[in-house]
Design a protein around this nucleic acid. Structure first.
Lengths: 239, 239
DNA sequence: CAGTGGTCTAGACCACCTA
DNA sequence: AGGTGGTCTAGACCACTGC
């Protein structure tokens, strides 16, 4: 069984919604009918529909049926940023380049000890990178990793995608992230590297990323010129 | 059956994690053992664990077992904002008051027609409110609803919680929201009402909220003094 | 190899909605 | 009352992991 049945069924129903076989704001066939059509038990149909409901594509109501809500793109032309692919994946590898401003190993400050939950004698990488899109400076990233979680980091890797290195070479899996978004003003560092103007608004994203093991992998702050970049969040209500 | 078994089991396991009966970074008993303990089938245990995995509390790996990741609070002291409860729920009713700056009915601009997917002859409410926490101006909200979705709106309701009115009096259910967060500078309107200083950073949240029926209910922008408020996002990786 | 979680079934009962 | 989705079972087979 390459891909699970419920996944294939979900894909097919998603396709039908996009193709308007199941038009928006209409009811799709009930679970028993779908179970017969796909030659599968009702539980499997339900699991497929559950996934589509989490995506916000349909809404199920007991006693009534299953509505098509339509695509998220119905609600906005803008699609949300991918959560765990860095800039490189979002913009395409060929567009992104990185300038390494700082690449140090040090002992963690108290703030970092708290954010990453590491001991005071546990060395960490401290990295400042300027990320450019098509050669234009766009994002200033200040990143801290525990050294033991990211062994063998080099300047060469930093010039490309750190996330590719973590996923492919180190086989690390991201468990989740907690992000805080703030509005700030451009500081001297932004002016020097981002081509910002003093007093210009800057969107700052502060985040902690942890692994599926529960260990904290990264604490970082990234600064984006507001005129270029916002932060988009899609929120589906599940009650 | 008041609450489903899987829900009660999930609550119990969550309690055990908080109580350190299942300590962080350890394995919890396997699904068959739990099924026997709770006198329930394994599918039910799995559904309970699935829920906890979505919350980011545990991580399951086929062939290995189920790890405790610990609480999200392990990763940050700050908890994310509640998605669909307005300010009133977040801060507590007794702390929030609202000043209605504008309360109009008009025909939608082209932007609004597009954002709310309403016809040009479909009247909408246009509302500006200044929200105060403990009497201090904190948030400027500019909100637009289609009139037909929110009948009977009055100034009195606007002074309290619109969301309570929608949920309780109108029985509307939120399907989801798409939000975009931007960094901007305080404008004259902010200076006049928010006690902002010109040139101060302002966090702007622009959002579309839709109902479980797929209809768009609200388009709004809210402006927060950055010094007071950020926006927090929790992101659990599900692959 | 034994043990884990992932998937799937066929059928059952329930709560909810519309009529 | 009849139909909907929600829950639950007892058992089966699979893929993956570690020993």
């Amino acid at each position: 069984m390459a891909t699970p049945k419920y996944q294939m069924i979900a894909d097919e129903i998603r396709r039908r919604i996009h193709m308007n076989v199941y038009p928006a704001k209409s009811l799709i066939p009930d679970q028993n009918t779908l179970a017969k059509e796909f030659g599968v038990s009702r539980m499997t149909i339900k699991k497929a529909l559950d996934g589509l409901a989490v995506e916000g594509l349909i809404y199920k109501q007991s006693g009534l049926g299953t509505y098509v809500l339509g695509d998220v793109s119905v609600h906005a032309s803008d699609s949300p940023a991918e959560a765990f692919d860095g800039l490189t994946k979002q913009e395409g590898e060929e567009h992104v380049s990185s300038e390494v401003i700082k690449f140090d190993v040090s002992l963690p400050s108290e703030l970092i000890q708290k954010k990453l939950d590491v001991a005071s004698d546990e060395p960490v990488y401290v990295i400042d990178r300027l990320r450019k899109i098509d050669g234009v400076p766009r994002v200033l990233e200040h990143t801290i990793f525990p050294l033991k979680l990211v062994p063998g980091l080099t300047r060469e890797i930093l010039m490309g995608s750190i996330y590719d290195y973590m996923h492919q070479a180190l086989n690390l899996k991201f468990g989740g992230a907690l992000r805080r978004i703030n509005a700030t003003l451009a500081n001297d560092f932004d002016v020097a590297h981002l081509d910002a103007t003093t007093g210009e608004p800057v969107l700052e994203v502060e985040q902690v990323i942890w692994l599926t093991t529960g260990e904290n992998l990264e604490y970082s702050t990234s600064r984006n010129l507001a005129s270029w970049r916002g932060y988009t969040v899609l929120d589906i209500n599940n009650d």
